[in-house]
Design a binder for these strands. Structure first.
Lengths: 232, 232
DNA sequence: CAGACTTTGTGCAACGCTTCACAAACCCCT
DNA sequence: AGGGGTTTGTGAAGCGTTGCACAAAGTCTG
């Protein structure tokens, strides 16, 4: 079963590195807000909860150059990571599924940073269409193609129940969206080229249960499953 | 920096396997609900979005024995995975932080399966204490030790803003909770032995942005960063 | 200006996970 | 009972990630 091919031929950044860059970026913004202009890999690493060598290797993939004996320039590193992640522009987001989770995500402030903006909220239930959620009017899922065209929506968030997730994903894809973040506990069939990230709340709880209980006589010295925070 | 030691000496199950078991379990429950009594690794694998060999290797770590030429007994496999994950009991959950996200998680049905029950919701803001959320009364964070003792709370969910996350985590740990699921975008310092799982919504969006944009001339043929769903 | 100190950047080894290839085991049909 | 077909279980290879060790490069002090 083939994996997603590269959408465009680029320099290679390991997946594990990419998933850590947002954390670094957040720590850098925090440092900048406090007036810090230079950070060492050790400082930034503890703020992000990783090892200094890991941080330096990660940054080396960006072609980033700190100054030996000094550290990294905060402002410059912010620019470089922002650029590497593609955050130098607006990313209009549509959220499909206006249940409890969808409403909360719409209002969640964490979705309103770094150029991400929820610009449309949709549901398939006509009874919900027209309601206001966090300043937006709920639209019907059939309006999605129009909204994508008008608002330049690039990312779709699925907050539907599992049984409606595939239909909603199909609607997103049909409307031209190629990046989906789903909270629905279901396997989605998508055409090649569509990026998918999954957040599974139930799975997280199950893993925690495993780490506590270890199962009936079964357990693990699990390596990075349970990450203990690093002292700051 | 040492990693989390094994809480108790058990058989070794790879971390990656543990994180997939809940998905298998869900697919098995779905199959059982449809009256299916036997599944092959291929059927179960496609339902879960993984490769058949991956599924078989995962199950082999449970000491599970399917029947060659036939497949796996659905009911038995449910029992084995449930047991391995430690889901054969109640897992009372407390949610700290009754903002938008906390309220939604409290009402989210996905948190109400497999023995997980939200039995307490808390906040540090006195103005919120006493309000009703999804049938529960919001308690003050100071009441946590009492509630843990009375209700047997085993898992804490952090839905606070980043700046209050460490204090809330400290409160959970002080109350005796050793398993934490956090949605706060912050690195947490925790004592050894406390299990932590992190869900970072902003990071997921950032990764999707990277997969679309690829950064300013930087991108990746990322392996498993973007998983395309498998046809079911 | 030289030497000590600090911090980055990176080759390399160790580790864990994924995937392949194939033998072992089981059912069913004749 | 025997043979063909199917499916599991697993050794082993391939791959990516992590962590270490150390050289390179810069600052600072006397």
């Amino acid at each position: 079963m083939p994996m997603t091919p590269s959408p465009s031929p680029h320099r290679d950044i390991p997946a594990a590195t990419v998933s850590r860059l947002p954390t670094y970026l957040r720590a850098l913004h925090s440092a900048a807000a406090q007036g810090v202009t230079t950070v060492s890999s050790g400082q930034l690493a503890t703020a992000a909860g990783v090892l200094p060598t890991q941080l330096r290797k990660d940054l080396s993939h960006l072609g980033s150059h700190g100054v030996r004996g000094v550290g990294y320039d905060v402002a410059r590193l912010i620019v470089e990571i922002t650029s590497a992640l593609g955050l130098g522009r607006d990313w209009p987001v549509a959220i499909v599924g206006m249940g409890n989770l969808g409403r909360a995500l719409t209002a969640y402030s964490g979705f309103g940073t770094e150029g991400f903006h929820v610009v449309a909220v949709l549901d398939r239930d006509p009874a919900l269409v027209g309601e206001r959620v966090a300043g937006l009017t709920v639209r019907h899922i059939d309006e999605l193609p129009t909204l994508v065209a008008e608002l330049g929506i690039a990312i779709g968030v699925l907050a539907t129940p599992a049984d409606g997730a595939q239909a909603a994903a199909d609607a997103l894809v049909a409307a031209g969206i190629e990046a989906i973040l789903t909270f629905a506990p279901a396997a989605l069939a998508l055409p090649p080229g569509v990026s998918l990230r999954r957040v599974d709340l139930a799975t997280e709880l199950h893993v925690l249960a495993f780490l506590r209980h270890g199962g009936a006589g079964i357990g693990a010295s699990v390596s990075d499953l349970a990450k203990v925070g690093v002292a700051g």
